[in-house]
Every structure is written in C-alpha cells, then in structure tokens.
Design a protein around this nucleic acid. Structure first.
Lengths: 234, 234
DNA sequence: AAATTCTATTTGTACTACAAATATGACAAA
DNA sequence: TTTGTCATATTTGTAGTACAAATAGAATTT
C-alpha cells in the first residue's frame, strides 16, 4: 500500500490514500475520520507524515480537526487554494493569456444569466456607476473603476462561484494592464462591429433595452484589447 | 510576527508568511528560497511547523524541494488542487448548481474562440464523432459519448485551461445526470428557440455554415437541461 | 584534464515528550 | 431525577532529537 522506495514522498502517498478513503467510504461533510494514531497504524508511517498529509487536506478545506473530537470531513471552499496560486509573478505568459481568454469567455457567456436575472434596482445601480465614471472621464478610469462595472455585472448574473473566480483573476488583469499597456489604450481599441468604441454606458444601454444580442456584441467589442493581447502579443 | 496564541495554527501562519515572502521579494520560478533551518530561525518555530507549511506549498506546486539543493519557486499547475476538491460527495447543491452554470457560461462564451480557430480537419473529426453517435442513436448516448463531442469543441477553442477546467467538472455532471436524471431526458428538453430538439449533428451544421449566432442559440438550447436544473431543482 | 571518491549539507522519516483543548464520565447539589 | 461542577482521559498542536537518503561540491586519483 505505502511504498517507501517511491520517488514521491510518503506524505504525497498518504494524502492520496486519505482522499481515496473519503471517496470509497462515501464520506460527506460532517462525517468523522480516523484520528492521527489510527492513520499511523493504517498506513504504517510516522505521525509526522500523517500530519503533513492532513495539513494539506486542512488547507484545501476538505477536513477540519479539533482537539479530542478528531477529524471531520467538511465542504471545501472551491477557490481558496486557487487564489493562492493565482499570482502573476508565478505564471507563464501562456497561462496569463489563458486567463485573458477565460475573462472573455466568462463575460460573454454570462450574458445569458445577466438578462435572466437583471432587475430595475440593478439597472439603477449600474446607472450610478456609469455616471460616476462619465464624470471621471472614460479615459481616466483606473483598473479599479473599470472593475466596478464588471463586478456588478457578475453579481447580477447570480453565480457566486463565477463572481469569485473573476475577483481572483483580477490581479492578473491589473498586472497585464500595467505591463503591456499598449493593448489597453481605451479609445484606440474598444471597438464594436462598426468600429465604434464601446464603453460601459453603451453596454448599459443594451441592458436597458433588453437587447441581449446587442449586449453580447458590444461586450465582445469592449473586451477586444484582451483578444488582441491573446493573439498578438509576442 | 508569529503569534503562538492565535486560533490559527502556526503552520497556517507560516504558510501565509512564506507566500508573502515570495511576493514581496518578487521571486519567480527558478529562484531559490531559504532552507528549512533558515525558516526555523526566521519564524522561531520548530522544523515540524515549517515542514507542514512547505508541504502545503509543495502540494500547490508553488515550490519544489530537492535534497541539498534546497527549495526553489516553481510555476504552479493552476488546477491540480482544484481537482482535489471537485468531488460531488463533498459539495452542496448550491455549489453544484453553480458548476452547472459554469458549464453553460463556458460553452456559450467559448463559441467566440471556436469560430476563430476551427479548421477543416477539426470539422472532419467532429463529423466522425457525430456519425458514430448517430449510429448508436442519440437517445442511447452515455455521458462519455456525450462528453466526446463537447471535449473536442473545447479543444478546438484552444484554451488549455478551460479544457482542463471542463474535464475536472465532468464528474459533477455525471453525478447530477445519475442522481437527477429527470432533467436530462434527451428528447424532451434539448429544445431550441422554435421548440425543436438540438443534437450534436445540428450544432455541427452551424459550425460548418460558419453561423456563430446560430451555433450560440443552438448550444443554449442543447444545454437547456442544465438551465432547468439550476432554476427549477428543489 | 577527467574520472572517481569523499565529505558536508539538506531534505525525508521516525520517535519521544509535553502543552492545550475538550469530550466524557464521576460526583455533588437542587 | 435533573442540573451543574469538576476531574480525567483522549486527541491535536508544537518542540526537539536522531538518523537515513540524496547530492552538490571538494578532494583525490588516474
């Protein structure tokens, strides 16, 4: 079962075995697990190794431990560990481009849910955001200003996972805009089908008109800089 | 710096500190890190604690360690830990619904990249897949058969991250189809705008006609069971 | 100079010891 | 009998020692 001569460490193997243990025993959140001593006997390793494996599962949120109570299975927050690796310093250009692609895909696909769920109150909020941005001047928007509108769009669509995902990717967008800003000069590239620039005000107008197709195309134009970056950089 | 009286464990704190260390020193893949002994001195904890923290970062793929060489920063595989938590046993219905939503959003948004990248060879492959499925009978398709067509679509779109993401979510789809199969009776619900059923053959026909809008709407119809599940279940 | 061996360093694993928290049962009070 | 308090035992969290295994770099030999 546990192979001490493998290239992988014992902690790696024990981690896999414990995950397997949870699956094969169809344990669900709330169910108990063996304690450290019992795992030691099950896998014939030192407590150190068991603790390293459990430490990882604790970080993932798959298990929790409390003194005397032992370990219990928990529902993991899906994206907490994803957040930890989403660091532009650590990622290759290929991966960063894939994140840009993810952004485009999510925001286009989200239109379906956006138009299903949008309320009058949502539109009022969007109007406020847009009018503040008009006051600042659409060319002077910081990435945070820019983000404000889109975050609200995600929120309206009503899928917490996707909202969170977008929030986690945000540092990547900031990084790219700072380091490759040629692609993100507003007036030059956010063009729609007819070569007209697409700003938040116009996106909002399609929402108000309940024009999903128009919104989709406008969003596609609004995100054109990302597209350019994916296909033209380097 | 390290607080021994906190409710979080020392390993939790050291983990955060080491991640912070990598960020503030702008370390990139290939760069070295202090060894375990040095971290012990830096944070004033036992080697055990340091090793638990490093073990977690190793699992995330942020660092690698080799004897004598010490630790080096590495580019993490973004989704390896995501895969570990993507277990239908562990997830709530809310989260599972959000995954269904993710499926719809990804596949709709992906259309943009699909039509940009699709080649004649791709279309031939899709034709083969579809004809095999016609032979089996569209109502007899297993989830794996069903997946074959869509996986190819993802592959054509050319974003490895999204392909991998979809593959990781697959067990969730299988789980839902098995447990809530009322929503997934093919002939009754995969309807398009006009109330006609949408199968892979028809999706392919839109690709061949280079009709992106048609494909989008057809895909929306094809995924209608997911939509129904999200909004109607429970 | 090249190949080999040796040595020192670093990670991986095992084991012991104790602190801290707390579930459980024993016991006392009403 | 029920309730509240306390003691005990169990389990996780942390520290420390010891040694095995791997290997980078130095020393040695050819």
């Amino acid at each position: 079962m546990i192979n001490k001569l493998s290239s992988t460490t014992l902690a790696d193997q024990v981690e896999k075995h414990i995950i397997q243990y949870i699956r094969t025993n169809t344990l669900v959140p709330g169910d108990g697990l063996p304690n450290e001593m019992q795992f030691m006997e099950m896998y014939g390793t030192s407590r150190n190794v068991i603790r390293e494996a459990l430490s990882r599962l604790r970080m993932l949120g798959i298990v929790q431990s409390r003194t005397k109570r032992g370990m219990v299975v928990t529902e993991p927050p899906l994206l907490s560990s994803f957040r930890k690796v989403m660091d532009p310093q650590l990622l290759s250009i290929k991966t960063i481009k894939e994140m840009m692609g993810m952004r485009i895909v999510l925001e286009l696909g989200l239109a379906e849910f956006l138009f299903e769920n949008v309320s009058n109150d949502d539109i009022s909020e969007l109007e406020q955001i847009v009018s503040r941005q008009q006051a600042i001047g659409v060319n002077n928007l910081s990435v945070e200003d820019e983000m404000l509108f889109h975050s609200k769009i995600y929120k309206i669509a009503g899928n917490d996972f996707i909202s969170q995902f977008n929030e986690i990717m945000h540092p990547i967008f900031v990084f790219v805009k700072h380091n490759y800003d040629d692609y993100f000069k507003p007036l030059s590239q956010n063009l729609d089908d007819n070569g007209k620039m697409v700003n938040h005000k116009q996106l909002l107008s399609f929402i108000k008109l309940n024009d999903k197709e128009g919104y989709y195309k406008a969003t596609r134009g609004h995100l054109q800089p990302y597209w350019e970056f994916i296909y033209n950089f380097k």
